[in-house]
Simulated scan of single mutants.
Amino acid sequence: MKIAGKVALVSGGASGLGAATARRLAREGAKVAVLDFNLEGARAVAAEVDGFAVQADVGDADAVGAAFDAVEQHFGSAPMIVVNCAGIGMAARIVGREGKLSFDVFEKTLRVNLFGTYNVMSHAAARMATLTPDEDAGERGVVINTASVAWQDGQLGQAAYAASKGAIASMCLPAAREFAQTGIRVMAIAPGLFHTPMMEGLPEEIAAKITANIPFPPRLGEADEYAALAQHIVENPFLNGTTIRLDGAVRLPPR
């Protein structure tokens, strides 16, 4: 699918991978909606890309629906490109010190990462199905969800995060099969260790230890490298129903 002229929506677009993706899609000629819980941050990125900022808690299906309505009203069309980058990374042992359980962390992580992705994908697909197919590829839309390498090698304390990202990877194929009849593709990207606000919040010595595990290139990934893959997925119509690791060959150790 050609990007130029298409309406695109990026969730979690106020920072990190989402902001880089919003910028790249805009450079390629898309009309970009930046969706984030942080409306101020979304407005800042939208101002950079001559886009449209919209606020929503992705875990709230009604709020996501209202956000899509606002985007459609603003641009005159539903998005044909949707990239889900909204997410949180909370760490907690399943059973912590003195037997403390962590269901609250598990519930919140799945609500944002998994339910949020599902909500955005659902509203996107419902609206894409009503669009006129793209003249070149004959498709009505593409949804790109964000998993994580923790999907396959989650570390100690990452049970909730790994579960949320594993579910995103697992639903990629059945979602792609379901939406194939309306010409909508679904893909997932599983990033490794990237320069994002989540990583930048770590102490320097811990970040250095983490980076040392990356075979090649021996550094953290750049957000625009994620965005470049998202761009390629949009433009390559035969990419559908799978999860791509983007990780410099890293495999996370147990802790």
Rank of each mutant, 00 (worst) to 15 (best):
R97F: 12
L101P: 01
E98N: 11
G87K: 05
R93M: 15
I88S: 03
E98I: 10
R93Y: 12
V95R: 10
E72S: 14
V95Y: 10
I94W: 14
R93D: 15
V71G: 01
A92C: 06
G76A: 07
A70C: 10
N84T: 07
V82R: 02
P79M: 08
I94K: 10
F103E: 15
A70H: 09
M80A: 15
M90C: 07
M80P: 03
G87P: 04
C85V: 04
L101E: 13
G96M: 00
R97V: 10
F103Y: 14
V82S: 00
R97K: 14
E72V: 08
V71T: 04
M90V: 09
F75C: 00
A78W: 00
A78Q: 03
C85N: 09
S102I: 06
G99E: 11
H74S: 06
V95G: 04
S77A: 15
S77N: 12
G87H: 04
A86M: 00
G96R: 01
A70G: 08
I94Y: 12
V83I: 10
K100V: 12
M90P: 06
F75R: 00
A92T: 05
G96C: 00
V95C: 06
S77L: 11
V71D: 03
C85P: 03
K100G: 06
M90S: 12
A70P: 05
M80C: 08
F75L: 03
K100M: 14
I81P: 01
L101F: 13
F75W: 04
N84M: 09
E98Y: 12
F75E: 03
R93C: 09
F103M: 15
M80E: 11
S77C: 11
G87C: 08
I81Q: 02
A78N: 02
R93L: 15
Q73F: 08
A86Q: 02
A78C: 05
A92P: 01
G87W: 06
V82W: 02
V82H: 02
I88Y: 04
M80N: 06
N84D: 12
M80L: 12
R93F: 13
L101S: 07
P79F: 05
K100R: 14
M80K: 10
I94M: 15
N84E: 11
A86S: 01
G96I: 03
G99P: 05
A86I: 03
F75I: 01
F75K: 00
A92R: 06
V71K: 01
G99A: 08
E98W: 13
M90N: 13
V83G: 02
G96V: 02
G87N: 05
A91L: 15
G89F: 14
A86V: 02
E98P: 00
A91N: 12
G89E: 14
V95P: 01
G99C: 07
E98S: 10
E98G: 07
A70V: 10
N84C: 11
G76I: 08
A92N: 04
V95F: 11
C85W: 01
L101K: 11
L101T: 15
G99M: 08
M80V: 11
E72Q: 13
V82Q: 00
I81Y: 03
F103D: 14
I88P: 01
G89M: 13
I81D: 02
A92S: 09
V83E: 05
H74Y: 15
V71A: 01
R93W: 11
A70E: 11
V71L: 00
Q73Y: 07
L101W: 10
V71F: 03
V71I: 04
H74T: 09
A78D: 00
G76N: 04
N84G: 09
G76E: 07
R97Q: 12
